[in-house]
Write a protein that binds this DNA or RNA. Structure first.
Length: 198
DNA sequence: AATTAGATGTTCT
DNA sequence: GAACATCTAATTA
């Protein structure tokens, strides 16, 4: 069962980010189906968060989808190489989003190995925001602005985790955001090996 | 084990 | 031109 609009369009991005842990991310690209469990996420807020690309109304071609209603995919190119996948949340014009940072491969593993040019299943296959996108075939070209209730990319329901199974930390790679870099908005599943880093 | 360089699109200066 | 929500392979210690 796909997560519905009502899940994405709530107010609290941080809460949504937490609840995404343990859910499954599904992609169907070029007729190939893959599934992976979300193990690590980060929340970004469109207001009062210097780490967010769309902070305080910054509106460019790249950030445009973040201003759409919750339930769209925000995919952008990082360092000119990596496609990073985000889920837009909240109602239109708020520009909140959740970055998916790591996943655990569930289905279509042979396809992921091929896309990543790896010989065997190992941590490096999909634990990291750039590598997970490559494993699942997510690209800016195909997925930027896609509606998450369609049949190319979507997330399916799963029970929420207990707080005791979730580890909280500050976000990765956002030191330039001054005091906002300290926000405890990164969450990952405790004792799961599919994590970008401790 | 830790550090570094190189890949390179989009945005801002 | 510089910085950036990164990853990998190579080099140094």
């Amino acid at each position: 069962m796909k997560l519905q609009k009502s899940f994405y369009q709530r107010e609290n991005v941080v809460q949504i980010a937490k609840e995404l842990l343990g859910k499954t991310l599904h992609t169907l690209v070029d007729g190939v189906y893959t599934v992976a469990k979300i193990t690590e996420v980060e929340a970004y807020s469109g207001r009062d968060d210097k780490a967010c690309h769309a902070n305080n109304g910054v509106r460019t071609k790249r950030t445009e989808v973040m201003y759409a209603e919750g339930g769209h995919a925000y995919v952008y190119l990082c360092y000119g190489i990596h496609h990073l996948f985000n889920v837009v949340t909240n109602v239109a014009d708020k520009a909140d989003a959740v970055l998916i940072r790591a996943v655990e491969p569930i289905e279509g593993i042979d396809i992921m190995l091929e896309r990543r040019k790896k010989g065997k299943l190992e941590k490096g296959l999909s634990s990291g925001p750039g590598t997970l996108s490559q494993a699942l075939g997510i690209t800016t070209k195909v997925h930027y602005g896609k509606w998450l209730l369609g049949d190319e990319i979507w997330i399916e329901e799963a029970p929420n985790l207990n707080d005791t199974e979730i580890v909280v930390s500050k976000r990765i790679g956002v030191d330039y955001a001054e005091e906002d870099a300290l926000k405890p908005w990164r969450f990952y599943i405790k004792d799961n090996k599919w994590i970008s880093r401790k």
